[in-house]
Simulated assay, not measured.
Amino acid sequence: MSAERFNCHYCKDPLLGKKYILKEDTQYCAKCYENLFSNCCEGCALPIGCNNKDLSYKDRHWHENCFKCGKCGRSLAEKAFAAKDELLLCTECYSSEYSAKCASCTKTIMPGSRKMEYKGSSWHETCFLCQRCQQPIGTKSFIPKENSFYCVACFEKQFAHQCCACKKAITTGGVTYQEKPWHRECFTCIGCKKQLAGQRFTSREDYPYCLKCFSNLYAKKCVGCTKPITSLSGAKYISFEERQWHSDCFICMQCSISLVGRGFLTQRDGVLCTDCGREK
C-alpha cells in the first residue's frame, strides 16, 4: 500500500506514524473508529474507546471502571454477580436483598447453591434433614408430619402400623380386623385367598372366610338340592327334624308343589303334600 493511500478510511487523515485500528481489512484512525464502532457504556453513557476494556453482559457494555454493583458500588470485574431486572449486583447484595433464607439455619441461600423448596419455604440441601436419622433427604421421597420431615424408611419405623400378616409397614389405607391392622391385599379368605376388603365375609375360630368358602365348609346341606344353606347370604330355609331345605327346594317330591306354609308328610328323605300322601 502506498504512503499516500495509507489514510483513515473515514476522515482520510494520514495514518503513517499514528495509531490505527483495522476492521475487516479496513484501517481507521482511533477517533473515527471510536465514533463509528465503539459501544456506549451503560454506566457513564460515554463510548468505550479502543484503549479501554469493554466488559459485556447480555448485549450491554461497560467500561471496566463502570462495571460496578448497583447497590454497594464495588467493582464486579472478574467477580461473580447476579442480575435483578436491569440491575447488576454483587452476590452479597443480591443475597441480602433477594435470596431466600434457610428455614433451618436461617442463613441466606446463596445464588447458584443447591436448595430444597416445600410449601413456600426453602432449605439448604444439607439442612433439609430427616427428623429421625438426621440424614439429608436430598431428592428422595419424604413424608411431612407436623413441622418435621421424615424419609420413608424412618417414617415407617416410627409411625406406620405393621400388617399382622406380612409384618410390613402399612403406609396407605389398610383394614382393621379384630383390632389388628392388615394391608388390604393381605386381608384374604383363609380358604380361597380371595381379598375380603370391601366384601361381605364371616369368621370361624377367629379366621376370616368369604361367604362361599364358609358355606362349603360349615353350612348345612339342603335335602333337596344338596347345596349349602347359609343365612349369611340372606337365603330363607325350612328346618324339620334336623333336616333343612332351601325355601325354593321345599316342594312335594311327587307333584312339585311348594310346601312352604302348607301341611306336608315325610317319606324317607323326601316330603309330600297331603294330597299326594293320601294317594300313597
Rank of each mutant, 00 (worst) to 15 (best):
L87R: 12
T126H: 08
H183F: 13
C66F: 03
P47I: 03
C72P: 01
C102M: 05
E205H: 09
P111W: 02
D25Q: 15
I238F: 09
N7S: 12
D54Y: 04
A169T: 07
Q178W: 03
F201C: 03
T106Q: 12
W62D: 09
P136A: 05
L88Y: 13
L87I: 13
L265S: 14
Y177S: 14
E42C: 08
D269S: 11
C255A: 08
G277Q: 04
K227P: 00
T266G: 12
A197K: 05
A153I: 08
T274H: 09
S121R: 14
G120W: 13
L265E: 13
K84Y: 10
L55T: 03
H63Q: 04
K84Q: 13
C130Y: 05
G173P: 06
A3C: 02
Y28M: 06
T176F: 07
L211H: 07
C69Q: 09
L196C: 03
C102N: 07
S148K: 13
Y209I: 08
A160C: 14
C11M: 12
I257D: 11
G73S: 09
I21R: 06
S99R: 02
C255Y: 14
C222E: 08
G43I: 07
L196V: 04
R184W: 02
F264Y: 15
D59N: 13
R184N: 13
Y94T: 05
T266S: 15
N7D: 07
K31R: 11
E279P: 00
K53N: 13
E241S: 10
R74S: 14
C225A: 11
E86R: 11
Y10E: 12
C192T: 08
K107A: 10
I238D: 00
S148W: 02
F214C: 10
R262W: 00
K140A: 11
C8M: 11
T126R: 12
